[in-house]
Design a protein around this nucleic acid. Structure first.
Length: 629
DNA sequence: CCCGGAACGA
DNA sequence: TCGTTCCGGG
């Protein structure tokens, strides 16, 4: 599957690997955690807390037991489990919330990208404090750096049959757990799931998964560039129950208006079974960008798949005009044109086959089958070790950290400048001091790439955690300050500089070219500098890269570097510079690039429920699978 | 409690 | 090769 040949640029393997996906036979700890988090039954043991993506293990032993049961390792204990969790730090799947016991936070950035872009995590309702509505703009969520464009670019690979087939098979086989002894866990989970599916309405179903906040905002924030769009108050909470943020656009109706790129016809195609109302459908895409429909499709599909896989809320589904995303089940509805795209539909269908919910399911399935992640590219794993906390901290901390960590408080909402905002208000004070040392490491390093991202989810958290979590904690819960995607910029910039060439893009020019084209399309006139790809490359390239890769790249780059030379991470000086630059020029572009993405993402509002229900089912199915001892 | 190197298994 | 588990140290 992995083609070694690949350059390796895109996302981390785990992000797209089938194995990573929930449906996969071998469950991974983080999947498991996610699973538990989504179930209320376990909310006593583990639950979302505070910031997005942040969860607390209330009963470590129990969690360990459950995990052990799942893996058929009776000896599992929290210590081991936590080690496993720690292992994820390097992968950036999660990180520890300092200062809080048993509290970790998911970095969905990457995950999101590939597997599920819109995710949010949060507490579902179950969660007590945190659940709340997002504060104002929830900004936590960030778009995946890579975004579709990247994906698209690599589309080549996407289609590779090999992957699909293999995946498909896997999925198909998939479910069924081997572990007979399956402890209660399995059964419980399964049951629970089942219950959710059927009995409960969709709302509930997913509610657990997602977090209260809404990612959308973040999206917006990221993309401000479309000035027109302004994504004012994206978050609407349509559904009271659901914790999630709601669909973004809908609220402000105006926002939506802008439609997608001109290139595409805006026509909303209701192909999707769950398609939301057409009008709503197009989210925010700015007029600026246009994607290639196919690409979009792929992206969407992938996204969809992820959604299903992870039980994300329906909102997660993207809606894009002209593009049809196949749904997993429910073939009955329409089988629109699923063209080759098909989707993702995954395992569920297969595994589900057992339940023919939708009458004619069979046929539909075929079409869709696909793998989870259509995209193949991956970035390389960037793990790097961050060993030197201390060292780094001293150095880097200062400037970079600040920038990166933004506390920003709701700027987005208000400000929402068309451009990106750079560092918000971050309170330097607190952050710096505090963070500097401890955090610094993380922040620095990560922040480069991730923190921001990661933080994005919990912007506040980071800083505070050390000092005081208190405020962040639930009080508002949300606390979401803001966003800051500014960080991104910074980050990006950095990266750019560093690894300009790297790119992913394939080897060479060609690769790059591919990628860019999209960009070009997207970009609009004014802002971004579209310019031809070639030309663009020089400067724009960087920027672009930044955006895309931004995080990943940075990390990787850094990581690589670090690895190669030494682990220390220090490149801050450079970074800083980069940041500055990036801002200047980058801002616009950023917006553009990302904006596009955002646009893609948009979630559809209303209608999704169905989808969600299905999703649920699917998920349920998946969850059942687990086990294989 | 948390970290991360080292060993181990698939 | 990758992920998980063991284990000593902070």
């Amino acid at each position: 599957m992995k083609t070694p040949g690949d350059t390796g640029f895109a996302f981390p393997d785990w992000a797209y690997k089938p194995e990573s996906s929930p449906g996969s036979r071998q469950i991974q700890l983080w999947h498991f955690i996610l699973e538990l988090l989504r179930k209320e039954e376990y909310h006593d043991v583990i639950a979302w807390q505070g910031d997005y993506g942040e969860f607390v293990i209330k009963d470590p032993d129990e969690v360990a037991r459950l995990w052990g049961a799942r893996k058929c390792k009776p000896q599992m204990n929290y210590d081991k489990l936590s080690r496993a969790l720690r292992y994820y730090y390097n992968k950036r799947i999660l990180h520890k919330t300092k200062g809080k016991r048993f509290t970790y936070k998911f970095n969905f950035n990457k995950l999101v990208l590939v597997n599920y872009p819109f995710i949010d995590m949060g507490s579902g309702r179950g969660v007590p404090q945190s659940a709340p509505p997002v504060p104002s703009g929830g900004t936590h969520f960030r778009f995946p750096p890579s975004t579709p464009s990247e994906v698209l670019s690599s589309s080549e690979e996407l289609r590779s049959p090999g992957m699909f087939s293999s995946v498909a098979r896997r999925m198909a086989r998939g479910s069924v757990s081997d572990c007979s002894d399956g402890t209660s866990t399995n059964s419980e989970l399964e049951e629970a799931v089942g219950a959710d599916e059927r009995g409960v309405g969709p709302d509930r179903a997913y509610r657990g998964l997602l977090p209260p906040r809404l990612p959308h905002d973040s999206l917006f924030r990221i993309y401000p560039n479309t000035a027109g769009l302004a994504r004012p108050a994206p978050r609407v909470h349509p559904e009271p129950l659901s914790p999630f943020p709601v669909s973004p656009l809908p609220g402000p109706g105006g926002l939506l208006a802008p439609t997608l790129s001109p290139a595409l016809s805006m026509t909303p195609t209701p192909h999707l079974s769950y398609t939301p109302s057409p009008s709503l459908s197009s989210p925010m895409m700015g007029s600026h960008f246009s994607f290639n429909p196919e690409d979009m499709k792929h992206y969407l599909q992938a996204h969809t798949q992820s959604v299903y896989n992870y039980h994300l809320s329906p909102r997660a589904f993207l809606h894009y005009p002209n593009i049809v995303i196949p749904q997993p089940h429910r073939p009955t509805l329409e089988k629109p044109a699923v063209h080759h795209l098909h989707g993702p539909h995954h395992p569920l269908s297969h595994s589900l086959s057992q339940q023919p919910a939708g009458g004619g399911g069979g046929g539909g399935e075929e079409q869709h089958q696909q793998h989870p992640s259509p995209f193949k590219f991956k970035l390389q794993p960037p793990p790097l070790g961050r060993k030197q906390r201390e060292a780094g901290s001293s150095l880097a901390a200062p400037s970079s950290s600040q920038s990166s960590s933004f506390t920003g408080s709701g700027q987005i909402n208000n400000a929402v400048p068309p451009k990106i905002k750079v560092e918000p208000i971050s309170d330097i004070e607190s952050e710096e001091e505090v963070e500097v040392t401890d955090i610094s490491e993380e922040d620095e390093l990560h922040h480069n790439d991730e923190d921001d991202e990661g933080d994005i989810f919990t912007p506040t958290a980071r800083h505070h955690h050390q000092l005081n979590n208190h405020h962040r904690a639930n009080g508002n819960g949300s606390s979401i300050p803001a966003a800051p995607h500014s960080n991104l910029e910074d980050e990006d910039d950095e990266e750019v500089f560093k690894t300009p060439a790297t790119p992913p893009i394939g080897g060479g020019g060609s690769g790059g070219g591919l990628a860019f084209p999209l960009m070009g399309l997207k970009s609009e006139p004014g802002q971004a500098a579209p310019i031809s790809p070639g030309g663009t490359r020089c400067i724009p390239l960087k920027l672009r890269f930044k955006r895309r890769w931004s995080e990943d790249q940075k990390m990787e780059a850094d990581g690589e570097r670090d690895e190669a030379e030494d682990k220390k991470v220090r490149a801050e000086g450079e970074e800083e510079q980069a940041e500055e630059k990036g801002r200047g020029t980058g801002a616009v572009e950023n917006g553009g690039g990302r904006g596009v993405i955002l646009g893609l993402m948009l979630p559809p509002p209303p209608t999704q429920r169905r989808a969600s229900s299905e999703l649920q089912r699917a998920t349920a199915q998946l969850s059942l699978e687990n086990t294989g001892c």
